[in-house]
Design a protein around this nucleic acid. Sequence first.
RNA 1: UGGAGCGUAGCUCAGUGGCAGAGCACCGCCUUCACACGGCGGGGGUCGCUGGUUCAACCCCAGUCGCUCCAACCA
Length: 949
Amino acid sequence: MVSMNSTALTKAFEPQAFESSIYQFWQETGCFDASDVSVPDQQPFCIVIPPPNVTGVLHMGHALTNTIQDILVRWRRMKGDNTLWLPGTDHAGIATQAQVEKAIAKEGKGPEGRPLSRHDLGRKKFLERTWKWKEEHAGEITNQLRRLGSSLDWKRERFTMDEGCSRAVREVFVRLYEEGLIYRGERIINWCCRCQTALSDLEVIPTDRKGNLWQLRYRIVDAQGAPVLNADGSQAELLIATTRPETLLGDTAVAVHPEDERYLHLHGKFAVLPLVGRKIPVIVDAYVDREFGTGALKVTPAHDFNDADLGKKHGLPVISVMGKDGRISAEGGGYQGLKFAEAREKVLQDLEQQGALVKREDHAQKVGLCQRCDSVAEPMVSKQWFVQIESLARPAIEAVESGKIEFSPKNWEKTYFEWMRNIRDWCISRQLWWGHQIPAWYCSQCEGITVSRTTPSSCSKCQAGSSALKQDEDVLDTWFSSALWPFATLGWPEKTSALKTFYPTSILETGFDILFFWVARMIMMGLHFMGEVPFRKVYLHAMVRDEKGEKMSKSKGNVIDPLVLIGQHGADPLRFTLTAMAGQGRDVKLSVDRVEGYRAFANKIWNATKFYLLQFEDAQGGPITEPTEGVAAWLEAHRAELSAADRWILSRLQAVAESVEGGFARFELNESATALYDFFWKELCDWYIEFSKVPLRQGGEARYRTLMVLGHVLEQSLRLLHPIMPFVTEALWQALPWKKIANTPARVRDGKPAVMTLMFQSFPVAQNSWRDAEAERTIGALRNVVEAIRNFRGENNLSPRVEFPLRYLSTSASAVAFLEKNEAAILTLARVQKLERLTSAPASGAETGGSEPAFEAVILLTDPAVELRISLAGLVNVGEEIKRLKKEMERVKDDLDFVRGKLAKESFTAKAPAALVEKERQRERELADQWKDLSQGLARLERMAGGTS
RNA sequence: UGGAGCGUAGCUCAGUGGCAGAGCACCGCCUUCACACGGCGGGGGUCGCUGGUUCAACCCCAGUCGCUCCAACCA
């Protein structure tokens, strides 16, 4: 048996004192380790981590996703599953390369005094540098995940560029190529001039920009180049509208709507491109919007996605006028070498000079920005590798349609379908160095392509030797390797036992922002290569924002650093906050106040446990011995001896266990969190522990019994809380006197030593036999009595130090019995001197002339049905009590009016359920009685006030 | 343009066809022997707006306004 050294509990919750040592204990004793093979009747449960960028730092989004995953994993582990949470990091092509390039640039100057670039180092040296950078930084984020408490199986940690993943990438690439699903082609793609690479559609963020809409005048000619004249003999012209005049250098057509009457006479004619002089056809296509601009548009197939489609449809030539450096290419004639923005100005100037610029107006437009660097992404034609995606998408759509994969929240399925059904081929080549180099070789002899899992020794087309072969310089999109994550990390393409045990994985938990980037692609690749979905359920959490609901960003300076919060308040309060606030379908607006509030909750748990332990040490009559049969069995055997409070808290424990389980199962973790918060604080601490002080003081059997109940409830609560707050619960659980290993996880049965940890205790299951409606009613009544007296005290600003006797009057035998039985609890909780039963209403002192109390407060209760009386002599002046009574009467009056109004309507009494009507009638009677008693009490007090003044 | 989500107390959010809830903040009283990171009490809301369904609507339906996000072919 491996155990932890437990130390005395500090006075208050101090997470810094135990978090790191507890994590170390878990990790060193193998608590996180999964087993490649489940034991009989053990379920596998697996989540693969969404791999964070290897050189990244933990932000709130990571904190949220990993908290949620850790909760699910810890919960399933406690339920006895063979649980694997697989860690790893992503090489993050562009992001990482950019970091290293930045570092190099700072280091020195290259030729001509420019900052040193990767090209000065060369590919080999640069990659060496990047690997070194990766090794230096990789530990940072994984250590941060540890600080959060993540129970990841670190022995299986993977990296998207490790040997296994790289092999999987090559395998997938080659197979898809052989199946014709990967091709190389010259097509329009998004190009980031700053990052100098192609981007996929997803990596370009459409952004609103203020722009202009210009109208340009084109001259119309016929096929022979002769001017076309209007009816009046003037030169026929066409006005087109454009937001990007500089692209006209590459225009190969103008387009109008086929039914646009303004342009019918131009069908089959040609336009002369200003500045360039090229004769281009007027094409007709229903795609053109007649309402927009002039209803005529210029077509630039090389630099606009829609125009590319049009060009393809109409067989237009593609003229690329922009280079990868973001400057006009040789095709641009006199504009060559200008940057796009410069070219625009020059083109406009020249057009104006020629009289071809007709009009300029303001126009809001969308400009695509590079996701990484925020610079404008230019559509241009380029030779790239693509995945032919449609045949991969089809089964991926079906998998969700058929329910083999379920999304939560469900409405994301709609978004998923929408995207998948309109999916475009995926550009997978990137002009970077950091990443998986494309396993394609070009032959200098025959120009053939050889695609191979390993470096080929000869050209597959002409058999030329390896010296004739040159590997493609480009690397694959980072998301290409991420798409293989669920099976590559489990050993694919080898048929490993881990793959057999854990694929398909159970749940994929991530943010909806990478639904298309990652989730959809994993589904496609998983289905294609494993023949099975990669996961059964997808849970998409919301975004973490600041307390104002704004996206956290470095530039806004509103970033809340999870590590700072962990340092200040501990990992558990942060985890609890994220859990409590992560309701489905709603952004998480994180406020530090909230974290502080839940730190107080952790402190509450801490002190409640301390209270219990204190009782243990103070036991009178020798140390308390553990029942040999165990606490749970003891409780079962002694059920009949339990008090109402005992049965009540045990009943409530079942209710909270059910809520917690339900919340976890339905991904409504906030429900689990709030159920635990309310139970632990408001029921266990505020009431049960207060009740328990009476029997604990009493000693003997009552004390023993109470310690059994309290110990049991506390220990079960720690189990229920553990998935959300692993550190503090483990620290406290280790300090408990009696612990048994309750279940036998796989690793114990493997013959390794068992570990004494809360992590492996069975997760409480609600037991209906402990549900006790009668006890819940009793305690409810008891609370009513205590609260009524506290309320009286509060409203009269009476210090708890001021004790007074309480007298009561009741015609209900059960109410009398109830008060007699619970006298001790009432005296303690309401701080009452003594409890005295009256058999008849006392007359006021003035009426009897005797020694009866001069005047009394009257408090009416319906459950229990009693009239409480508190002598006011020396406590409260009559005026104050009259005020209180009047306020009370007002409340009763309002309620009574409401109920009577309801009952007065025949439509209600006739159509509402009979039970409800009866309930309302009952309520009306009670309120009427109260009203009567209160008015009598008030009249008496007013007489008294009159008499004494 | 289409789709989704959200509008409930000063703030952040739960919530249910049957008399509106929590945390924080606020105001009283209390250093009561687990906890001042605490205890007890209190004030505070036309549940965005307008209609409809219903005996009964914060909840269901239709519309409307506002905010946020996503997908987009209006150059």
